[in-house]
């Protein structure tokens, strides 16, 4: 759905999708191993700047996309801040008990959620589904029947959204009373799912007839290889990690080195 918003394609789009995914996995693990909040704050800041200036989307779109991240930052942080265990009490009110340890740990969790979310969003924004699955087939040897099924399913999404709109209008025209919660989910899910499943079955028959399920050697319409941008991509994230560690250790913002 994001791919319909007009945007400029930066060099991040040119990097090999499989390589991007691999870098993402490495950074994901690296973020999990960071226990120094100073380092994590720096890394989050670097990723935020890349999100703002590297993805090529206009500022208002970026703002709306970033909004859920505020929420996740506060929600990840607040629960641990208010209810976590610790010894140095700062504030106590009923069940809420804020200690120095739980506060810093909560802040750390918030930044961790932010960093991981930004990593994923940068990947999602700068990777188009078609090259992604072609690259997974060529570089990671993902079975074509899985990859093409994915691509076919992604192509069905706009049709599903249209149908969702149709159902909404139909319910309105017929004066069906509003309903909340799971009942509402069901009212929309049954027609949407049944239509999608029928469509999927028809497409599957066509794809089987065209040997998309075959397991022999095959050629690809898009050949996805590696380029100089892949080198840049790896270098960029290595630089991020290094800078975050260097600044975090030599110029700390808060006097905590390990939140555990």
């Amino acid at each position: 759905m994001k791919w319909e918003i007009s945007h400029r394609e930066t060099w991040l789009y040119e990097a090999n999708p499989t390589l991007k995914l691999a870098v993402l996995v490495v950074l994901f693990l690296a973020v999990l191993l960071i226990h120094n909040p100073n380092v994590l704050i720096n890394l989050s800041l670097a990723l935020f700047l890349l999100f703002c200036f590297g993805t090529g989307y206009p500022a208002n779109v970026l703002f709306w996309m970033f909004l859920p991240f505020f929420l996740i930052f506060f929600s990840s942080a607040s629960s641990m801040m208010m209810f976590g265990e610790g010894t140095t009490t700062w504030f106590r009110w009923g069940l809420i008990h804020i200690t120095a340890e739980s506060f810093w740990r909560g802040l750390h969790l918030g930044f961790r959620a932010l960093a991981l979310g930004l990593l994923g969003l940068i990947f999602a924004l700068t990777t188009r589904p078609v090259p992604l699955f072609y690259s997974l087939m060529q570089q990671l040897k993902l079975k074509p029947k899985y990859a093409y099924s994915f691509l076919a399913a992604v192509r069905l999404l706009p049709i599903m959204l249209e149908e969702l709109q149709t159902i909404r209008h139909a319910l309105k025209v017929r004066g069906v009373p509003r309903q909340g919660g799971l009942g509402k989910v069901k009212r929309y899910a049954i027609p949407l799912l049944s239509q999608s499943i029928r469509r999927a079955q028809r497409i599957a028959v066509a794809m089987e007839a065209k040997q998309f399920s075959g397991s022999g050697p095959r050629t690809f319409y898009y050949e996805i290889g590696f380029s100089k941008y892949d080198g840049w991509f790896v270098a960029l994230f290595a630089a991020f990690l290094f800078a975050a560690y260097y600044v975090g250790i030599h110029y700390p913002y808060i006097p905590i080195r390990d939140v555990r």
């Binding site: 759905m1 994001k2 993402l24 996995v25 994901f28 996309m65 859920p68 991240f69 929420l71 996740i72 959620a113 991981l116 979310g117 930004l118 990593l119 994923g120 969003l121 990947f123 999602a124 924004l125 990777t127 589904p129 992604l132 399913a153 992604v154």
Partner: peptide
Amino acid sequence: GELIMGSQWGLE
């Protein structure tokens, strides 16, 4: 699918 659509949790 959630990841490709830009989930707030990213790769997680």
